[in-house]
Amino acid sequence: MALVRIPGPLRTLSQGDSTVELKASDLRQAIEELDSRYPGFKDRLLDPSGNLRQFVNVYLNDEDVRFSGGLDAKLDPKDEVSIIPAVAGG
């Protein structure tokens, strides 16, 4: 089970949950799984052509997936996926 960390701005979608454990072999599948549990995630994370939206960053452990396999990045059970949105509050 990989652990997905949900940031504050997206917790309205996850009914307030800050972490979600799910079974997925790669990141794309994890996003599908997340969306099936909490509809709306896919639209927030992926653009219409299925790529990661530019203003959302997804990290696998402490690495940006854009530099390490993208949506095809393999997930191990102990991996942590973090969604890092752009926030601007000051």
Binding site: P7, G8, I84, V87, A88, G89, G90
Partner: peptide, 8 residues
């Protein structure tokens, strides 16, 4: 940057 209870 901050949002509710979180910061970067």
């Amino acid at each position: 940057a901050i949002f509710r209870f979180e910061g970067q």
